[in-house]
Amino acid sequence: MDYVLAALVGLFIAMGVYLLLSRSVIRMLIGMTILGNGVNLLIFTAGRVTREVAPIIPSALEQPSGPIANPLPQALILTAIVIGFSMFAFLLVLAFRAYQSLDADNTDTMRLAEPEQTPNPPLSY
């Protein structure tokens, strides 16, 4: 089953990359989310998966009674999800504002910072 998850990770990444390579800001945003999900699943799978035993110790015990899921990747992913969401919200609002200000969602037309015809640097001291 690990291999199936690994293949699924590949699909997530491929979709994310494909969408990120689009010129539309909103599609890039969705691609970012999917790529993030893929990476989360990657970390999860790399920490080995077990079925159904959460890393929670029964309240009467000091140690888990049997093998449990690896808690470390879970802790890493938990914060990654929340931060990924903040990032998503920020990018969404940024894209929205860019759309309102520039009337465009195509990255090719957003050339304020790097204009089409950059003048040569001045040849003097």
């Binding site: 929670i56 999800i81 929340v82």
Partner: peptide, 12 residues
């Protein structure tokens, strides 16, 4: 701290 849950989930 002892069951599934926590600040992140609660906050969301």
């Amino acid at each position: 701290h002892n069951e599934p849950g926590g600040g992140f989930i609660g906050g969301l």
